[in-house]
Nucleic acid binder design. Structure first.
Lengths: 184, 184
DNA sequence: TCGATTACCTGTAGAGCGGTAGGTTTCGTT
DNA sequence: AACGAAACCTACCGCTCTACAGGTAATCGA
């Protein structure tokens, strides 16, 4: 019944995540996603009327994922998160690919990422403030530290995806956290 | 004669840079690039036999660009570079889009970026070593500082491209350099 | 001046794309 | 048992994409 349908949709979203990781959004065809769940492309379109609707569902899934309810993040949990991410390359790859595409004109995920980063920077500033107060040991305000924190996480992901052997993502991230936490 | 031809190819590469910035590599059609230089798609294929050949030329152009001959970069020049980049969003957008796509399977730019990052990390380590010796003031080795430096540059670019009003890319980068240069 | 090369063009093949139309099967409800 | 909706299919449309084939006009060296 209705539960069956939701389950099906969840399956499709999961498959879409995989295909986007492999080919990006533009390169991900509905047929490829459909095949992965044993449907025809038109069968898939019954659950998601357009390709963009499927993308929206993928992005919503991501939001649900990292909005762990009422968890007040702490700096040491961020390090653990990065470590966890290093074990789930598929997810990282999906959203790294989407982020890259999203900077192009009229990309359907552009607004999503813009708003997401505004939100994430604010969250990170909160985390830093909770840890260090209005000044980090290095002298930065939390609001100026936050974009750097986010940039390091994203930037390391690209380097790591391209060459996991050469880049110790969690280690490098810990180095950065240490840098933030050191006295000037 | 031959000079004419090279000039034409340069025009095409320039146009390709623009179109890739707008639509990514997968989204960039040869016809769109051709139109921008007043050619038909088939006319363009006379100069570059395949789409991939055109991409290779674009990547080569980039190499030529940032291999400013014999310039030994210094940390303060990096800050100036970021400032300069902030005035040329088209270039940044092109390569941010390409980087994002390149993490997908079998992307023709993947190897390029993998090798490029290996090289850039090594260069950055050299820069840091030239500035600070074998230990940064914060205690990091140059080899461990370099991936962070690169990550911050890339990560800030994405945030800035998505929302230039909200992200002071050069300022944030200077913050990071100060962080690297501070005593532990 | 001639022959060849270069720089294009038109035409078209061949595949893949997202999306629509409409039919059929399955299944829970009454 | 009958009905209606949901789930999914076949068939197809119109478009776009890269690339190939082959022709034509200009240009350049001998």
């Amino acid at each position: 019944m209705r539960a069956r349908s939701e389950e099906r949709r969840a399956e499709i979203v999961r498959a879409a995540l995989e295909v986007i990781a492999e080919r990006g959004y533009r390169g991900a065809s509905l047929a490829a996603v459909a095949e992965r769940v044993g449907l025809t492309q038109q069968g898939l379109l019954h659950h998601f009327p357009t390709k963009e609707a499927l993308l929206v569902a993928v992005l919503k899934e991501r939001d649900r994922w990292d909005a762990v309810p009422d968890t007040q993040w702490r700096v040491d949990l961020l390090a653990a998160l990065v470590e966890y991410n290093a074990m789930r390359p598929a997810i990282i790859q999906t959203f790294s690919a989407l982020l890259g595409e999203s900077v192009t004109e009229g990309h359907p995920a552009r607004e999503y990422f813009t708003e997401r980063y505004t939100r994430v920077r604010a969250n990170m500033a909160d985390v830093l403030r909770a840890e260090y107060g209005d000044r980090l040991p290095s002298g930065l305000t939390p609001e100026r530290g936050a974009p750097l924190l986010v940039a390091v996480m994203d930037g390391l992901q690209y380097q790591w995806l391209l060459d996991p052997e050469s880049v110790d993502m969690p280690g490098a991230f810990r180095d950065f956290l240490a840098l933030l936490g050191e006295e000037a």
